[in-house]
Simulated assay, not measured.
Amino acid sequence: MIVAGAAVQGSAHLARGQGCQDAFKAVGLDGAAVLAVADGAGGRERSALGAHIAVDTACRVLAEGVPRAEDGPQVWTGWIAAAGARVVEDYLRAVGGVLAAAPAAGAPVDAGALASTLAAAVLRPPWVAFLSVGDCFGTVLTRGPAAAGAGPGTGVRERCHLVLPPPVPGAPDTVFLSSPGAALRLRSFALWEPELSGVVLATDGCAPLTLDHPSVRELPPEAGPLPSERFFCGLAATLRANGGDAEPLHALLSGPGTARTGDDLTVLCALTDGG
């Protein structure tokens, strides 16, 4: 398994002298990987800490009791739903402990000061399980036979699929792990895919860089955002070729084209390393 990730401070945050408020973490298991990315709320004073607590909590909880590759859908969907509820509960407990240990002068500070979104995934081919609170998003990669007539050297083609999309424009306000009722608004699901070759998580600032408007593929707007094959499949090919060195990913997120988002950018992926 190849695991690589990078986080880059957004241009708007840099201009304001504000540090990166994203966080990511990965844990390798026997034949599996746990990934988590988090995006601290921009206007909250301690959200960067909240994002780090979020990924630490998610990786710790999701590394426990991961179902086997041969287990069925009921096992996987039940496990990720229960784990998701526990992630929210443990996050709130950890944030409460931080606030109690270092109370602010004056008015009490609530958990919203450490507000963060979260997306996490557990990859154990042919299964991948996701949980999400907020606007981070996730893409699955698959490797299968190329279309007939694709030309020499293209017997196997990698494809990308946006399975955990960001909220649509005009959606209600972003939900954070510290929002009231966050556990009830958590998304969790599991996918069985025999051609599964990887999973990529990203914070919402990456959307302009990694997602295409449907018009790019001559589809109507209601088709929604589509994952950019140039980004995802190109990234996977690069990481497999260099053994997982994340420097090209960091350079990609730091390029001139990323200035249009202004937000912090974080991408984390796990890839099967087979040819």
Rank of each mutant, 00 (worst) to 15 (best):
S11E: 13
A15P: 02
A15H: 09
R16D: 14
L29S: 04
G31L: 05
A33T: 13
A33H: 12
V34M: 10
L35T: 07
A36F: 09
A41I: 05
A41G: 05
R44P: 01
E45F: 06
E45V: 15
S47R: 06
G50H: 08
H52Q: 14
I53H: 12
V55F: 13
D56G: 14
R60F: 11
V61P: 05
L62A: 10
E64T: 12
E64K: 11
G65I: 09
V66S: 06
V66M: 11
V66T: 10
P67A: 07
R68A: 15
R68K: 14
E70K: 08
E70C: 07
D71L: 07
V75W: 07
W76C: 08
I80Q: 08
A83M: 11
V88E: 12
E89Y: 09
E89K: 14
E89G: 02
Y91H: 13
A94N: 04
V95W: 07
G96P: 06
G97R: 12
A101Q: 12
A102V: 08
A102L: 08
P103S: 07
A104W: 03
A104N: 03
G106T: 03
G106A: 06
A107F: 04
A107P: 09
V109A: 15
L114V: 01
A115N: 03
A119C: 13
L123W: 06
L123N: 00
R124P: 04
R124Q: 08
P125V: 02
P125A: 13
F130D: 01
F130P: 01
L131T: 03
S132Y: 00
G134N: 03
D135T: 02
C136M: 01
G138L: 03
V140A: 08
L141H: 02
P145I: 01
A148F: 13
T154C: 11
V156A: 12
R157E: 13
E158T: 15
H161R: 03
V168S: 12
P169T: 00
G170D: 01
G170Y: 01
P172A: 06
F176V: 01
L177M: 09
A182D: 02
A183Q: 12
S188P: 02
F189I: 00
L191D: 00
E195P: 00
L196E: 09
V199Y: 07
T203M: 06
D204Q: 04
P208W: 09
L209K: 03
L211D: 05
H213A: 14
H213Y: 13
P220Y: 11
P221E: 10
P221M: 04
L226F: 02
S228A: 13
R230E: 15
F231R: 04
F232S: 04
G234M: 13
G234A: 13
A237C: 02
T238Q: 15
T238Y: 00
L239T: 05
N242E: 05
D245G: 06
P248E: 06
P248H: 08
A251E: 15
G257L: 15
T258R: 12
A259K: 14
A259D: 15
A259L: 15
C269Y: 09
A270D: 11
A270V: 10
T272A: 13
T272M: 11
G274Q: 10
G274S: 10
G275L: 15
G275I: 09
